[in-house]
Nucleic acid binder design. Structure first.
Length: 284
DNA sequence: TACCAGGAGAGCG
DNA sequence: CGCTCTCATGGT
């Protein structure tokens, strides 16, 4: 099978693939093209069905349904979000947006590249890394060649200069060292440890602090309570939840832990996308 | 042009 | 502990 259809409800594919949790999807002729693991795939949402096309025959589609989290009950998650006006506005804006389940290494490495970069630039950096150091992936006839995201082993073998040439700047030594520690097993990407321990493991890596660790935990390792706080979320907190009040970091984390519920990571992504698309960064 | 970007970490008082 | 500075590069 090169083409499969999946019934979907309350799923917004476009928003999900372009909201800043992943960086390799491109919109082309009303469809989305990307690479999941080592497979090229084209996705198209037609109302309540999702059409997926691959380059090579597929019998087991779980790699895709798991990545897209198609089996997840959307309304159950949104029902746990707080009922405050800002969250409700964010839900209205982002309806159907899902949290993906990405490859943990690709996700971690991508967010190591993301530090103080705009999303467009992150996409460029990752495109360069894949183009130069990824493995070729099968594509349909006549399609431009595509490569997978480079493994930790591959990046670990590069020089800092190789990475700087991919526009990583001061992130280059961090990505290199992280790749080496993951490749050697010195640091483990665990989806089964308690959240705090999994985060502590990740922050052993150079260039990985709480924000980037939480991104890897949420988008790659399935920790749905991991709550990345970047500049946009700080704007949301200051502008929406603590207007004209000084934010004490300790109090902020208590608020985050208690206010947003068991799927706070999802709620975070709603606020992030809402701020970027409908509120803006003014009055920071 | 000046400011800022899905930050982290060192140095300082 | 809390603040400031630096890191590299390019978008707006």
């Amino acid at each position: 099978m090169l083409i499969a259809e999946f019934p979907i409800t309350e799923y917004n594919l476009g928003t999900t693939l372009s909201c800043g949790q992943s960086f390799r999807w491109r919109q082309l002729d009303g469809a989305w093209e990307g690479v999941v693991g080592t497979r090229w795939v084209r996705l198209c949402q037609q109302g309540s069905r999702l059409v997926a096309q691959t380059a090579e025959p597929v019998t087991d589609w779980r790699w895709l349904t798991h990545y897209l989290q198609l089996e997840v009950d959307y309304s159950k998650i949104v029902a746990t979000f707080p009922k405050d006006e800002h969250m409700q506005a964010a839900i209205a804006t982002c309806r159907g947006m899902r949290i993906l389940r990405q490859d943990p290494w690709e996700c971690l490495a991508s967010f190591i590249c993301s530090a103080t970069k705009q999303i467009v630039q992150i996409q460029q950096i990752i495109a360069l890394l894949c183009e130069r150091y990824g493995e070729p992936v099968a594509v349909p006839k006549g399609h431009l060649p595509v490569r997978s995201f480079p493994t930790a082993q591959r990046l670990a073998a590069l020089t800092e200069a190789d990475l700087r040439a991919c526009k990583l700047g001061f992130r280059a030594p961090n990505l290199r060292a992280a790749a080496q520690k993951i490749a050697s097993g010195e640091v483990v990407l665990s989806a089964t440890l308690p959240l705090d321990e999994a985060r502590a493991e990740l922050t052993k890596l150079p260039g990985v602090g709480p924000k980037i660790a939480n991104c890897a935990l949420l988008f790659g390792l399935g920790f749905e309570r991991a709550f990345p706080v970047d500049v946009w979320i700080m704007h949301a907190m200051r502008q929406l939840y603590f207007p004209r009040r000084k934010i004490n970091p300790d109090r902020l984390h208590k608020f985050i832990d208690t206010h947003f519920g068991p799927y706070s990571g999802h709620a975070q992504q709603y606020l992030f996308h809402y701020m970027r698309t409908h509120v803006g960064r003014s009055a920071a």
